[in-house]
């Protein structure tokens, strides 16, 4: 599974937000999309999911062009995990996950027991089987995010697009969600997620796509991309990237603003 994003440009109507964005994403890879507000992170996702039309450029899914795919075919490649999902009605967790199967039967049909089995196994893989019968509305933010991930897995797409999955969660919950993301990568999913945290890419991304005013500022390994120079240029703040060691003496990197 390989996605090639080739020089795409697009935005909202005549207002162009993303310009000439190119990158590649393969199975078993996590790419963090970073950049300040308004740098085009969400718009990039909207273009890839075809919520907004591409003006120029193309996206290839295993060599097939986005432009010649139906929405239904696209859903077999891409699953979208929204940041906030605020349900009006009290669906149970299992019912929410089952909705991810909508692509697998017609509008005039109902899910088969096979679909229900897939939904349950997705919950099991994330270790939240015990929530199946609870009401989605009564879950914590972290649990909800995991349920959304389960729903995307039930869709059986190989690429997950996550809009700031951890941003509205408390510290422990965001760690749980990020752990789940890394497990998914190990299972062979490709994950594209936007983030405002500068530490997340160092701990769980294989590559970083750093956006600035709708253009790619840098793309590559976290340490090559999130350099103090690039960060200062993009965010307008002096920043340092430092190496630290955890209690098992494993190295990792942190990013922090420097006070003048």
């Amino acid at each position: 599974m390989k996605i090639e994003v080739k020089k795409i440009t697009g935005g909202y109507g005549k207002k162009i937000v993303c310009r000439d964005i190119s990158f590649e994403l393969s199975s078993g890879e996590v790419i963090c999309v970073a950049g300040p507000n308004g740098s085009g992170k969400s718009t990039l996702f909207r273009l890839m999911l075809r919520f907004n039309p591409l003006l120029t450029g193309d996206i290839l899914f295993d060599g097939r062009s986005l432009t010649e795919m139906s929405q239904k075919e696209l859903a077999k490649f891409l699953a979208y995990i929204p940041q906030n999902h605020n349900p009006v009605f009290a669906y149970s967790v299992l019912e929410v996950v089952l909705m991810g199967r909508a692509n697998h039967f017609s509008a005039f049909s109902v899910p088969k027991s096979v679909d229900e089995q897939v939904a349950i196994s997705c919950l099991r893989r994330l270790g939240i089987e015990q929530l199946a019968r609870q009401n989605y509305t009564e879950l914590s933010g972290g649990q909800r995010q995991l349920v959304m991930i389960a729903r995307a897995m039930a869709q059986e797409a190989q690429v997950l697009i996550m809009d700031e999955p951890a941003s509205s969660l408390d510290y422990a919950n965001s760690q749980i969600v990020l752990e789940a993301v890394m497990d998914l990568r190990d299972e062979g999913y490709a994950v594209l997620m936007s983030t405002h945290s500068m530490d997340t890419p160092f701990s769980c991304a294989d590559k970083v796509l750093l956006l600035q005013e709708g253009r790619v500022r840098a793309f590559g390994q976290p340490l090559e991309t999130l350099t103090p120079e690039n960060l200062e240029e993009v965010y307008g703040l002096p920043m340092d990237v430092v190496e630290v060691h955890d209690r098992f003496d494993r190295p990792r990197h942190l990013c922090m603003p420097v006070r003048r």
Binding site: E73, A75, K76, Y80, H85, V88, F89, M99, A102, P111
Partner: peptide
């Protein structure tokens, strides 16, 4: 069953491949 999907946000439903 499809009525359940129509409860979702339009974009969520579209991303699931629903017309």
């Amino acid at each position: 069953y499809r009525l359940n999907i129509l409860v979702l946000d339009d974009e969520e439903a579209i991303s699931m491949g629903v017309n």
